[in-house]
Amino acid sequence: MSFKSSGNSGAFAWFYQRITGIFLFVILLLHFTIMHFTGTGEITYENIVGRLSDPYWKMLDLSFVVFALYHGLNGIWMAIQDYVRSEGWRAVIYTILVLVGVFLFFLAAVTLIPFGLK
């Protein structure tokens, strides 16, 4: 059995890993700065409500989640390809990574999208 991961040689995964990396470099450092350096260091529900009710922040945060999950799980997949030789195990791990990604995107989406709309 030849397990197919994405129907390509891995070149796209390699390329997107760099594209998402550049995006994450900017947005993650900004995220950490806002949360831990420029604020009071106190992260409460009230502090977050205002930002998340703004549709632009919401879109930014959603794309942040998508890029971070893709970059992180694709990174794991790249490492797995280095160490796991069995095609069966590769298929199992790949499926788990996709399911974890979809589940956490779902969690993030149901948290972010209704914010400020109720």
Partner: peptide
């Protein structure tokens, strides 16, 4: 970082 990211999304989803 991946381990942290998964935990982080889980924790922050309590906003909902």
């Amino acid at each position: 970082l991946v381990f942290y990211l998964l935990l982080h999304i889980w924790v922050i989803h309590h906003l909902s």
